[in-house]
């Protein structure tokens, strides 16, 4: 464990909690892409199946359980409890254009042609594009609530910190996973436009406008 991975995980956890609390407290999921949240639930489910097969550490197991729990709780709040506030018209990204190519790629390019490894690879590739429906929705509505921008900032920051974690691990441990690294770079690049606006526009005060 190194400082980049720890802060990355905490940033990811913060993002997940921020979103869940925002929906729960405001009793509304306006401006939130339910499709992205479904994709994240799929990402965690397909990546953390090893919860059933291997124990790495208490930290590892706890975080995985929390991620999966919060992901499904968020999907439940969006599509069941606060369904009336779900903005389906603006959440119109065709996720099949993501899932199908990602599924195909994970069968073609992976480290090992075993079910668990292919599912892990699928989850890595899917996570790199899972935020697109949310970014697409914001570009359609032209704005986002301030709390949603903080959620996106933490979410984007987590994988950027993981990039530093992989540099650290390559240098100190000789560990690197090309699939995770390439997908992580793609994932972080997708946030660049948003990061630029988040930092320059300083719109902590007013809604995020494209």
């Amino acid at each position: 464990m190194n400082v980049f991975r720890l802060t990355g995980d905490l940033s990811h956890l913060a993002a997940i909690i921020i979103l869940l609390l925002k929906i729960w407290k405001s009793r509304s999921c306006a401006g939130i892409s339910g499709k992205s949240q479904i994709l994240f639930a799929i990402v965690f489910t397909t990546r953390y199946l090893d919860l059933l097969t291997s124990f790495i550490s208490l930290y590892n197991t706890c975080m995985k359980v929390i991620y999966i729990g919060c992901a499904y709780a968020t999907v439940y709040l969006i599509y069941a409890k606060f369904r009336a506030t779900y903005d389906g018209n603006h959440d119109s990204f065709r996720v099949e254009f993501l899932v199908v190519p990602v599924g195909g790629l994970s069968v073609l390019i992976n480290h090992d042609f075993s079910p668990l490894e292919i599912l892990w690879t699928f989850s890595i590739y899917l996570e790199s594009v899972a935020i697109l429906p949310q970014l697409f929705m914001i570009s359609k509505t032209g704005e986002a609530e301030t709390i949603t921008t903080h959620y996106l900032f933490c979410l984007g920051l987590y994988r950027a910190l993981y990039l530093f974690n992989w540099i650290w691990r390559f240098y100190f441990e000789g560990f690197f996973d090309m699939i995770a690294i390439v997908a992580g770079v793609v994932q972080t690049v997708l946030y660049c436009d948003f990061f630029y606006l988040y930092v320059t526009k300083g719109w902590f005060s007013r809604p995020y406008r494209l």
Partner: peptide
């Protein structure tokens, strides 16, 4: 570089 595959990352 050599690749160590241990899934200890989240």
């Amino acid at each position: 570089g050599h690749l160590i595959k241990h899934k200890d990352e989240l």
